[in-house]
Design a protein around this nucleic acid. Structure first.
Lengths: 212, 212
DNA sequence: GTCGTTAACTTAACATTGTTAATTTTAAAA
DNA sequence: TTTTAAAATTAACAATGTTAAGTTAACGAC
């Protein structure tokens, strides 16, 4: 029973409905629970209808993640108003870790699984728009901290600093997400590990006058 | 035409034959190329025969990876004979990163994809055997470096240090493996990032007298 | 030696998946 | 009223992991 003529707005509603249904399955049951049929079932449509709105499953999942890349950027944005550049930098990292561990499935999708390399042209995220692009936020935060002179004088490339601290925090988060329950490893408490990593990065990157 | 009665040794041969076939597909075409039928085809058996030797695909892949967990431990073992504890520690890290980036598919499988939590009892790796278990190697290397007094005096827990440095290096490796080709990020050269991370960890963890 | 038993393997078959093609339904346009 | 095209559905396909049901042939028992 297809009541014809859908306004562009109505189409958008359905499109985001699909995304939301996919997200719910995705969050609660992981990526492997997102079958086209399951998503369709959740919104009362047939599986093939999804293909009227997304080219394939990859694109649907990408849309789910895109929406939460935005969410990440938003979660981080609250820290951007912190006036002290060093505090802003530290809080930014704190929020990043918190987001990752609160949204492990999305985090996994964003940074831990391989997809065909992301074409910025295809993404709904505007690259370099600091309201949407968390990476450019990071670069900005590190750059201003750099200009404030908080880093060791030999560290002159903000991008390199950013990529280093990102890698460090990402390592922490991704090991936690993937191996937290691994009986092989006698993990120290998560909070302890976070503190240790933060301390390490602070001692490793900041001028001595800014330690602690 | 099944020529009956296979000795235990012959069975082992076939078993490792299956693993090797799976590994080859796995290495060159990634995990999604490892279909049971493809593996079977490669060794001239039918797909269902594999199930005589492995319960399911997961177990087969686990066996592939298990063999390379051993390979990792072996790649690292050459560093264990370095007499100076600090040099040993540094070289250990160096070799770890090299292994990860040389064997990205295996590394991804080991540490970047989620599996049902690893039951040490089921693994062919002997936990805490330093010839097989890279994690216990790491703990050993860090512990002896700790005893040699190279770390900052407030860092008293070798396990925590180990988990921190592991996370840092893992973050570096896993971002490289997954996002190296991502057009979104203007990555600094890999070598530069490795050096930056090593420097950061050294400044962050080592006593000042051991910097550089 | 022959004859079942059973190990080793294969072919058939199933359910599930992503995805495409063909078909239906219905509201608007002519 | 008829035509058309949008919106959706059902049917179908090929691929996959996996199970069930055969098939073949070597060994042990008589």
């Amino acid at each position: 029973m297809p009541p014809k003529v859908k306004t562009e707005a109505e189409k958008q509603v359905l499109r985001t409905g699909i995304i939301d249904a996919a997200r719910e399955l995705f969050i609660h049951n992981g990526v492997e629970a997102v079958t086209m049929r399951a998503v369709a079932n959740k919104i009362g449509y047939s599986a093939t209808s999804i293909y009227l709105y997304f080219n394939d499953k990859e694109q649907l999942l990408r849309a789910v993640v895109d929406a939460d890349v935005l969410k990440l950027a938003q979660a981080l944005q609250s820290t951007l108003s912190i006036s002290d550049p060093l505090q802003r930098f530290l809080q930014f990292g704190q929020h990043y870790v918190q987001f990752a561990l609160t949204n492990p499935n999305h985090y996994r999708m964003m940074f831990m699984t391989q997809h065909p390399p992301c074409d910025p042209a295809l993404s709904s995220i505007e690259q370099n728009n600091p309201e949407q692009d968390a990476y450019s936020q990071l670069i900005g935060v590190v750059t201003s901290a750099c200009e404030a002179g908080v880093f060791k004088p030999e560290l002159t490339d903000p991008t390199l600093i950013a990529q280093t601290v990102w890698a460090a925090m990402h390592g922490l988060c991704s090991l936690q997400i993937n191996l937290a329950d691994d009986a092989w490893i006698d993990w120290r408490p998560l909070e302890t590990r976070i503190d240790a990593m933060v301390q390490t990065c602070m001692y490793g990157l900041l001028k001595e006058s800014h330690h602690e």
